[in-house]
Design a protein around this nucleic acid. Structure first.
Lengths: 150, 150
DNA sequence: CACCCAATTAGGAAACATTCTTAATTACTA
DNA sequence: TAGTAATTAAGAATGTTTCCTAATTGGGTG
């Protein structure tokens, strides 16, 4: 979905098309993977210093609710990505080193035996599936660090 | 795995068996589902008011690193659960209303085509799979709230 | 049993991401 | 072009988690 279309969709739904929103959508569409609110804010500020961090959060939440971006949480913060395909639903392979993510062509729910769940009268709202690890660039760094945890 | 065994394991690995650690393990073993650090702290404080919240966090992190408890994140906070089975690896069906979780007898990785991933030279460290929704008790509450988000 | 010392603790301060509050500004409609 | 509700910036506030420091304590050793 391209930027112009998204802005039109916003206007149709009664939301104002502000320069801030345009900037956020622009920055999201420039990159493939996930970006944190802080990253989005920083990148916009480099040429639009008046941008407020709160505005970034507020609009990312709006776009998430409109199913225009998807949000995932790792490393203690939320990250956002434009839904480029239709259903706004995807899973990722994520590098713990550099944070780069790669879309997976796989959804566990396609293989899940729903009879076991539906029997329990559970109303499914959403799900999460992510694989974490280290990409080829970050493997060496990780090996040097070793098991430096508690 | 029972409590006495866990305490013995801690001692064998060179960690001290403090009353605080015993309390934390006790509280975790009393309930099936996930508990937040704050919940654990509150429950301990009810009969052991000197317990520090920081101590709860510190020890939950220790137990997580020792693979004795597993940590999942939802609703903006981490929650912890004792690993009662062997490998310390499980997935859950989680109610967004009451937070009660139910273990799933399913792991997506068993159905995942690893050739696609390994080809990319990616070192897998861990993964996440959870299904969120509303349990039979919370469905009605959720329906009354409607789509009150934006 | 008494001693010792590294591990552990409580408490408060700090860090961190995120949300709220408020008054001012602005996009869109008529 | 004016009116108005939505949106904004800025900083304050919130909530979770971690860090710091001095005091305490578990458990091995003599």
């Amino acid at each position: 979905m391209d930027k112009t279309k998204l802005l039109k969709e916003l206007r149709n739904k009664g939301y104002k098309v502000t320069p801030q929103r345009q900037e956020i959508i622009e920055v999201l569409s420039e990159r493939e993977g996930h970006q944190s609110a802080e990253e989005v804010h920083k990148r916009i500020c480099s040429h639009y210093p008046a941008m407020g961090l709160d505005t970034v959060y507020r609009n990312l939440a709006l776009l998430r609710n409109l199913n225009i971006v998807s949000e995932i949480n790792f490393g203690g913060k939320n990250r956002y990505e434009l839904n480029r395909d239709g259903d706004g639903h995807s899973h990722h392979l994520i590098c713990l080193g550099c944070g780069v993510s790669q879309k997976l062509d796989f959804c566990p729910l396609d293989y899940f035996d729903w009879n076991k769940v539906l029997k329990k009268d559970f109303k499914v709202k959403n799900h999460r599936f992510e694989i974490f690890g280290y990409c080829s660039h970050c493997i060496q760094i990780e090996e040097n660090e070793g098991e430096g945890e508690e």
